[in-house]
Design a protein around this nucleic acid. Structure first.
Lengths: 318, 318
DNA sequence: CTGTTAGCGCATTCAT
DNA sequence: ATGAATGCGCTAACAG
């Protein structure tokens, strides 16, 4: 049997309350006694019961993380960052994958609440309307999302990608998205459009509409995710265009496979650490009784790799 | 304030114990009363306190999941499967990423224990030696791992890949691994070797040793993961070889990007659902007082896609 | 500075 | 079939 607070109190002939005070450091205990208590606690391999503590304090020390879909390469990075930020703040992380419709997402939220989460980090599915919960919630999505807590500057990221291609002399671009419904994708593409210089032109291809990537005459392609960049890259190869010699390709989110391929993928990455940290900080603040902090937006950064190069000689183009 | 068991008891003029019996269905309560209690509980939006229940029963209803590295494309699939199997069995899932050395893995295990997990699903890092824990643990790794609970038949998976290429007339293969230390990779390659027919020959390239994939004269490449298959695919393209016309490529684990590329990747997949289900079932059994069930091994399946085709005409080869 | 008392919300005896 | 009493292990008040 695990030793309880009382056991170590008996061992030293003090009261359980004093042991609690000594161990948590909250009440006042003489330094000498405190050290003796800590020493014997260690010796007896005392582990406080999280359930008892949770019942007493009303805090489980666990937060819930709701993700749209772990099998989408974008989200594990966020999960990892949230887990590490939470661990640093002393929280455990309960995951819930809301795979499927927004209904499962609601179920997931309820389940986490039932399981005693102190707060929730939510990466919402497209078109979610946040229901009222009596738990603190931090939302990670985009600046365009009402109620958002922390997000990347997706428009700025789009602009970064266009600026990079502009610097390399590209004039004719293709923007590649999957779904118009995704706020993240729309924001990224809006940022791209806004950053076009007067000499540049761009078309947008939404994969949900169908359409042939290889048919483009653009010399630069910016996809809203590494996954679609990969599709573009391999489709181009297949049709005999070389990357980056003939066409440059940029992705988003710096997924592991972008470094596994040849040429490695130039990509625009989120500062997932910072975002996760802000989300956790927001929850911690709310749990501390403070009002929810303002939304925080973090810049994205472009990592140049082998998939982008100067535009080919215009002679061939025109 | 949330209603407690007592509140709903007062409402109906019965005792809290009866309400508890009615709601959990364990004690004996007259059907009529039971239904009335359930109805008012619903009406009052009663939610049992997980912390109180946990303290009383000694069970938190939460299991821990320890993964080596969420950013490695292999693991999110497992996480998703475990989460879904756990949810089906009424468990929540606390994640811990043991990113870094085996020391962090030990920390992760301790943290989950401290946080009140009832049991643990562990996907161990290479070379882990499982420490004794006083929690039930289910290990997902390979049949070669001592103490393993559920795993894929990685050798069988390797054999499947070789058989597929043999059927297509390939005689000269290249096996691509990353690290000899990985039991999973070693098992897969061992299975490949064992399945070679007398007419076939194969070389093995470990990426940790360096070496040039494009230098091979093999007409079929089997990588121990989709990620390395992707490296092979793009490297071959780069050096002017066509996939699958000149060289066929097979990966492992059926990651999302394998379907995003052109040609789509033929791959050997694990039955993650079954494995996760077995792991959860093992924990549930142990929590129920039963001994840990025997190890269970699940077959892998090959999904044929565009990256494999009949071997090119031998004339060009010899 | 330390000990005593009380109770968090629930599930389980054991009476009735 | 139902109710009263008890305690899971801990911490927050207050008393000494």
């Amino acid at each position: 049997m695990q030793p309880r607070l009382q056991d170590i109190a008996n061992e030293l002939g003090v009261s359980a309350a004093t042991v609690s005070n000594a161990l948590t450091g909250r009440g006042r205990v003489s330094p000498a006694l405190r050290d003796r208590i800590r020493a014997t606690a260690l010796a007896m391999e005392y582990r406080p019961s999280p359930q008892a503590r949770a019942l007493r304090t009303g805090r489980s020390g666990v937060i819930g993380l709701v993700l749209p879909d772990l099998s989408n390469p974008l989200f594990p990075a966020i999960a990892q960052a949230v887990e590490s930020a939470a661990a640093a703040a002393g929280f455990g992380v309960l995951i819930a994958d809301s795979r499927g419709d927004t209904g499962t997402q609601t179920d997931a939220l309820r389940r986490l609440e039932r399981q005693g989460a102190d707060g929730i980090v939510l990466v919402p599915r497209r078109g979610t309307r946040l229901m009222a919960m009596d738990l603190p919630v931090a939302v990670i999505d985009t600046a365009s999302t009402p109620g958002n807590t922390a997000a990347s500057d997706h428009r700025g990221g789009g602009a970064l990608a266009v600026a990079h291609l502009a610097d390399l002399g590209h004039r004719h671009l293709l923007f590649l998205g999957e779904s118009r419904q995704s706020l993240v994708q729309s924001d990224r593409i809006a940022g791209m459009r806004a950053a076009l210089t007067p000499q540049m032109q761009a078309e947008t291809l939404w994969l949900e509409d169908g359409g042939d990537i290889a048919a483009t005459r653009a010399t630069g392609i910016i996809a809203t995710s590494d996954l679609h960049a990969l599709t573009a890259l391999t489709t181009l190869h297949r049709s005999g265009r070389r990357v980056p010699d003939d066409v440059s390709v940029i992705g988003f989110d710096d997924h592991a496979f972008g470094r596994a391929i040849t040429p490695a993928l130039t990509t625009v990455a989120q500062d997932t650490q910072a975002i996760a940290g802000a989300a956790i900080a927001s929850l911690a603040a709310q749990l501390g009784g403070a009002p929810a902090p303002h939304e925080r937006i973090f810049p994205m950064t472009l990592t140049r790799r082998g998939s982008t190069a100067p535009a080919p000689n215009p002679n061939t183009e025109t």
